[in-house]
Write a protein that binds this DNA or RNA. Sequence first.
DNA 1: GCCTACATGTAAATAGTTACATGATTGA
DNA 2: TCAATCATGTAACTATTTACATGTAGGC
Lengths: 210, 210
Amino acid sequence: MSPRAGRRSGVLELAILGLLQESPMHGYELRKRLTGVLGAFHSISYGSLYPALKDLTARGWLSEEPGDDTQSSGRSKVVYHLTADGKEHFQQLLSEAGPDAWDDERFGVRLAFFGRTDQSVRLRVLEGRRSRLEERLDTLRASLQRGRERMDTYTLELQQHGLDSVEREVRWLDELIATERSHPTDSDAPNGRSVTKVTGTGTVPTARRT
Amino acid sequence: MSPRAGRRSGVLELAILGLLQESPMHGYELRKRLTGVLGAFHSISYGSLYPALKDLTARGWLSEEPGDDTQSSGRSKVVYHLTADGKEHFQQLLSEAGPDAWDDERFGVRLAFFGRTDQSVRLRVLEGRRSRLEERLDTLRASLQRGRERMDTYTLELQQHGLDSVEREVRWLDELIATERSHPTDSDAPNGRSVTKVTGTGTVPTARRT
DNA sequence: GCCTACATGTAAATAGTTACATGATTGA
DNA sequence: TCAATCATGTAACTATTTACATGTAGGC
């Protein structure tokens, strides 16, 4: 009965904090960039975004800056900044391993911010996702074994296709993990600066087509 | 402010009607079978199921049969049946093409009931899913083109993997569609009986491993 | 007598969406 | 000057989950 007090722990929080870590923005701009981070479809709506910004501000992770205006006389544009607490919270979110932490969407968002993430955290994320997928494989294989005769051809087809897809993703993750391990980054040492410089080239193999 | 009047149009409705079409059941049993239909993970909770059953009953698609009890003296087991209206509604749901009709979950559930679906509807569903995926491909390819230099290696990797996955699913669908076309079923004629007999073997190729 | 599985439900929270409402700024 | 796009928000709804509450039936 108190709907305006949300605990807020979805993808949105992660994505907003991640984008604001790169640079301060106002809501409208944030929303456009969000579409990119969240995977080309699945645009977030203003009806989710603005309440979320208010909420994150109330929790001390963002601060509103009313008029950053240096050029135009306009008003009402609210620029959001990540606070120190917000930065810390974001780093914690990136590395933490809640039960829903490894679903498709959250993993995608985490990966989108890898350019600004410590290599140790990157490895933890990749391995967390991988072990989540291994569990899925176990379930799927068991289900296929049990269902060999009991299920109709269509269900069997669907499950087999699903199994193949998950297996492909595991192989893909293995490559990413191997690449991370073969190019260890120095800047991961406990030197206070928790953000790795972006090398931008060569650290991850370009996807190859079959 | 009137939360107890839901319009109800999610996967659940489709899955419940589909299972009850096969045979009447009570909630507890339904829930176990639902887990199978919905894809091995993603069990539905009683907190969703029972209200949904009440709702579908109120809408005239299900009827409650209080004591089917022939053996034990126990009570309180409520067996749900699909009504004639419910049957009709289910067939309509299967073939209709709403905007969310082709997402992963809904497509999976539709496919799970293919054994009891007309071939013409099967083809419509497969082709609907296919064209949905084609749209995705366009978006993804455009995004990859634009982002060649702008995106970091990780995001590029993720998008490329996503693109590959969707391409694989399109090829998979193409095979299913081709198989349907090369084995036309007679029982699709307007003969009043809207359910195709299950052949159970050979109509769809067994998945092959790469 | 007690534990497990069977069986049914409700209240509140979660994580959003859609539709609506409003107004400022900019370029053709 | 008028449409498009920029910009911010609210109310109501959707679909679902989690935690809770309650009780029955059968085996050991």
